[in-house]
Design a protein around this nucleic acid. Structure first.
Lengths: 329, 329
DNA sequence: CTGAAAGCGCTTACAG
DNA sequence: CTGAAAGCGCTTACAG
């Protein structure tokens, strides 16, 4: 491997000078500069970024912790992050927790160890160990999707989004609205969205039956199973609408309903959250909520970059959303 | 930041010893080891991987070059790669070319510069500069999806997959089969798949009209536009089937046909390639080909890891695929 | 405009 | 079982 020393020798200058032309700082005479640049090209020399990072304490790398890599939400967020950080020549170090809480913490330490300049976490839960790990890492840090105490967070407006969906169903004359959610260890998706639904039902003095409330795990299959449970357990008192907390679960629910001969939305209406590509092309097209994930990624990246340049107070940003009315309600 | 020297001082030993317990090699007495481990825990010390990598010439990072990050194919492949490399404690450095050829080359140099231990490229084209860049990088290297000269490649069987789809359409009595493809700068998706289609038509002595052959750009929208062109330009001689080279373009084509009142597959049959989630849940469910992208990622990772341990001859691996017959043909 | 020297935080023969 | 020393490839005051 060619190093800065090799280039220096070949150009008959000191490595200080080579470093100067490489980084474009300080005075260097024209011909020396040209000579060095030519050598760099000829040899295909690429400076060792680990040496550089060891010396400068900056790596030019941003760590991103994802709950699941192959998910539309995650890839949109990553795409947003990438778009802004790549413009400033940062790279992304990706990390996938597979929904495993301990891995979140493990990865924070690992990324720190790799000298990343900052971390963006797509959080799925909140716990003491996690916030502790973030504190001790002592790195510019942004959380997306969960309101982590003491951490700058970009939040989706889960409560109001869920309330809006429920209200929209009610405005379509639905009074018996079932709910497919996820576990409340996830305060945003599991907690807030459920509250939004529950409160709206209560405000409208609409009754809720236990059989109408089921808990899935984000997957299409779990949506299918939850719909099955709802239909089977409340045969005598079927809901006329089902609000699913994610598009994928909504798609699963639709599949089950279709199999059972229900017509959507005539017999049972369905809505989701996420504005996945899927939601648009399924038949009937799914009513859903767009959370602008990519934009969240961009925003997170900007905040992180700002934080890296200069210590900032921790803030909370609540993103807006958009209800997309289609044919399933 | 705590360093190995801090730990050494606190533990009253040399940093050599600390290094030994950290890496678990060489003899260290029980109590010294315990003392150090305790200190590490207390201080939250994480060794600097850039220092380590500078010294050892290994970074524990794998570079991955993607044509587009937020794509189902890409995220499946990445997920496969991640699954195998993470078991050996490697991280992935992600890089997104946004379909830009020059960026492929730029990223190879950049990743080299970051001392990655190997690179996996999801290639979308083949050109002299690219293979040149790979040679000079002189790093363990795997290409997925294109047969790059002199590079170990994992290939999809594009020719036969396309031929199979075409044959299947023919076996459903279709004689007038249109084709929506992509540019031939992409030898696999643009070239091989088209050849498979063309050859199969020829073998069966089926005529092809120029208006039946359109070129999109992978997007759903382009599928829509291509279908429109086919229908408009061949009004007097409509095809009874359209083979789309990707699921997304097929979905776009379906959308247009539906808008125009064509019934699928009765009036016009459609098939794609990719086995996207979308293809399964769209109505009618799309006939397509599963390329096992995740498996390709796993395989690529394994080959790369093997190559990193020991120089291997360059090989070519052709993956198998599976035709998924659903309701659109 | 240019260079010598120190130092970033590790690991690794080598010696004891 | 343990440590002193060299060195990985850079950058950055400092001096001239």
């Amino acid at each position: 491997m060619t190093t800065i020393n090799d280039i220096a020798k070949m150009a008959n200058v000191s490595r200080t000078t080579v470093s100067r032309v490489l980084n474009n700082k300080g005075y260097v005479s024209e011909d020396v500069r040209d000579r060095i640049l030519k050598l760099v090209k000829e040899t295909g020399y690429t400076p060792s970024l680990s040496a550089k990072s060891l010396r400068t304490k900056k790596s030019g790398v941003i760590g991103v912790i994802l709950p699941k890599i192959s998910t539309e939400t995650a890839s949109r967020v990553v795409s947003g992050i990438n778009e802004v950080v790549s413009k400033e020549d940062y790279q992304i170090l990706l990390t996938d927790t597979e929904l495993n809480k301990e891995k979140e913490i493990e990865f924070i330490r690992l990324l720190k160890s790799r000298q990343v300049d900052g971390i963006i976490l797509l959080a799925t839960n909140i716990n003491e160990d996690l916030t502790q790990a973030i504190q001790t890492a002592d790195l510019p840090f942004i959380s997306i999707g969960q309101d982590l105490p003491g951490v700058t967070s970009i939040l989706y407006d889960d409560y109001h989004a869920a309330a809006d969906v429920t209200n929209m169903m009610i405005s379509h004359q639905h009074k018996k609205i079932a709910y497919i959610g996820v576990g409340e260890q996830d305060p945003s998706v599991g907690g807030l969205r459920k509250e939004g639904y529950l409160d709206t039902m209560a405000k409208n003095e609409l009754p809720i039956h236990n059989e109408w409330i089921q808990e899935g795990d984000f997957s299409i299959e779990s949506g299918y199973e939850c719909a099955k449970k709802i239909i089977k357990n409340s045969a005598s008192n079927l809901p006329t609408a089902i609000f699913c907390v994610t598009d994928r679960m909504a798609i699963g629910a639709m599949e089950y309903l279709r199999e059972q001969g229900f017509s959507i939305p005539k017999d049972i209406a369905i809505a989701g959250i996420g504005a996945s590509t899927l939601s648009k092309y399924v038949t009937p097209a799914l009513t859903t909520v767009d959370y602008f994930n990519k934009h969240a990624g961009e925003k997170a990246a900007q905040l992180l970059l700002a934080q890296m340049k200069k210590k900032k107070p921790k803030e909370k940003f609540v993103q807006s959303y958009r209800l997309i009315k289609r044919d399933s309600v």
